[in-house]
Design a protein around this nucleic acid. Structure first.
Lengths: 351, 351
DNA sequence: ATCACTTGTGGGAGCGCTCCCACACTACCT
DNA sequence: AGGTAGTGTGGGAGCGCTCCCACAAGTGAT
């Protein structure tokens, strides 16, 4: 027995050393097998694998993290309170894509909310301790200090959406401009002549671009843009409802609304119903995101589809590449670090 | 310069050793200060704290985990697909409570989905590697092997709800039986005479207890229990809708429904509306959970309030105590490890 | 003065890995 | 025969902590 009486360790998990002894090889060799190094002979590999199986060996992640200076974990940082996270289908869709892509790797995903100052404080601590190899940042507002903190700490990061046209960080975005254009063009082609829009928070670049697209489509069609037809929302259902009420008051003659998100469209629908307007007979309604609520709305909502799940997957791919690049002796830096995925209009009964 | 040229470590974070040198003390002393040991003189503590601040020292969690055999992280395990997680307000409420309670500690929360076989496989690996100090298990079905795996691995765990009356694991539950009783009594007191119930999945103990409460309340009031008035749902909106349709077909004369969850009540409401029944005029409706949808329903839903957020907090308290107990030289084992919190009927317009 | 505690402190040993140097062994050219 | 690669392998050193033993210095009873 050891002189040091195994300080109360429960279970007594086997170590690399023990696997090596069992397989009759050295520690280094076992490590190579575990990590899939090609420089191991077939016979040795088989022997080691047998020993691993017999002993039920599972690597100690803390030791590995300490020695190799990596954690095999990445964080999905949501700079919003939990409530928003759950209310917004966008997040769950991203999470699904991220989870799917990640399940093919050994990486672990942490979900971190940074919706309050206290939470942000804790997150900063967490990042400073380098407890994750990389960060996925979703829903970032223009003035958010988080991206800068990350580059300062030299932590690989990818953001969903951009903060501006020339986002310095690697990012994955959808073509918000083109998507908005297609929505408005669709409404025009249906003979609508008085088209309003409810925007998202304009400190989110994507919301800004959707508004730009709305303007451009009208302009291209030779229609004047009435500024009173543009009302800001905040991506929430309540915000959509408020915006719609305002529109009905100032521009009661409108015959179509392009909402900057499905959730806001749902709010707008309530306000329209309250006011006795029928959809699409009196007012056509188009959303953005094509999330689950669009399909389940009554009537089903025409919406601009963003491939959110695919975006989640792409973010992971980019991030993993970033992480690989950040390690010593990385092959070469990536070139295309900004991805913009196409959108597509899905027509349903609301327009 | 070191002979070993600092293998590409980015940032070059300060170590305990460097802090010690700066403060003119030994490593042990710095460690004691960091960990809040009382056996340090005031003067030394101040000096060390100054050095920590000057150097911007942040402990290396991997090293700490390796040396102390703990991770300072706990996992919230959801044995459901993400979709269910987002569709069910119960989870977000638990998460909110857990997050709130945890934000007062240094513990990190991981959210892990174990909804598919592949995911469960990965989770098992993860747990075997002891990457968390403890586990919170929500929404466990009677035959789930996860709890046994956890006790086998000797990982402290707390479950929300119980699997049976004599749950071996520490658990936090609400008084489902009494809650269901109060709902039915309320309907009876409102003069309803023909009360149906839509149950949750009966392999969830809580759903079973709600059904027991429904039966007991009717019995206590001297009313016979009509088995055709009991229809199983599955906690989903769609399930509630289906169950309600069935009830309307087999028992068209009913004048009240007690649904085993708010989400199912929302589904039932849709079916009632389709059938042209008015709420509460024709049929009174009562839900369970008192989640956000109860308040937002039209009409607002009478519901049995479970203090879900408080339950989340209690789970954390229990789990932290369990973890403390599992460490060597723990003071004493806990006694009360099963917590049952009271429920309360919240009356609204639906009944 | 001696002994027995108590309080504060320094630093060795060790946690379980990865990294990398050294070395044996084999091939295949000159 | 002597080079010159390449291929597998063993194991030392070290990652940055915590734990704990040893010990100095102070305090009070005998």
């Amino acid at each position: 027995m050891a002189a040091h009486p195994a300080r109360g360790r429960s279970g007594g998990r086997p170590t690399l050393e023990e696997v090596a002894a069992r397989a009759g090889v050295g520690r280094g060799t076992v490590s190579r097998v575990i990590n899939g190094s090609p420089r191991v002979s077939e016979a040795t590999r088989t022997a080691v694998e047998a020993a691993v199986a017999e002993l039920g060996y599972v690597p100690n992640t803390a030791a590995r993290a300490l020695a190799a200076n990596r954690t095999d974990a990445i964080a999905l940082v949501v700079p919003e309170p939990e409530t928003r996270f759950f209310a917004e289908p966008y997040f769950s869709d991203v999470l699904r894509g991220v989870g799917a892509e990640l399940s093919e790797t050994e990486m672990q995903l942490l979900l971190i909310f940074a919706g309050s100052d206290q939470r942000r404080q804790r997150l900063a601590q967490y990042l400073a301790a380098h407890r994750v190899d990389g960060v996925l940042l979703v829903s970032v507002h223009a003035d958010d200090p988080l991206p800068d903190l990350l580059s300062q700490l030299e932590i690989p990061a990818v953001i969903s959406g951009r903060r501006s046209a020339d986002e310095p960080l690697p990012s994955v975005d959808s073509d918000n401009f083109a998507g908005a254009c297609s929505a408005v063009e669709h409404l025009l082609s249906r003979g609508r002549t008085s088209i309003a829009t409810i925007t998202g928070r304009l400190d989110v670049y994507g919301a800004q671009r959707r508004l730009d697209g709305y303007r451009a489509a009208l302009r291209d069609a030779g229609r004047p843009v009435d500024e009173r037809m543009i009302v800001p929302g905040d991506f929430t259902e309540e915000g959509g409802r408020r915006a719609m009420r305002e529109l009905l008051e100032t521009r009661p003659g409108l015959d179509a609304v392009f909402a900057g998100s499905d959730v806001m469209a749902a709010g707008a629908r309530q306000a329209l119903r309250e006011a006795g307007r029928r959809i699409p007979d009196d007012v056509a309604l188009v959303g953005f995101d094509d999330s689950a609520i669009a399909r389940h709305m009554d009537p089903p909502l025409t919406s601009v589809r963003q491939p959110i799940e695919e975006m989640g997957r792409a973010m992971i791919d980019l991030l993993l590449a970033e992480i690989a690049d950040s390690r010593p002796f990385a092959a070469r830096r990536l070139e295309r670090r900004q991805l913009v995925l196409p959108t597509r209009l899905v027509e349903r009964a609301s327009s």
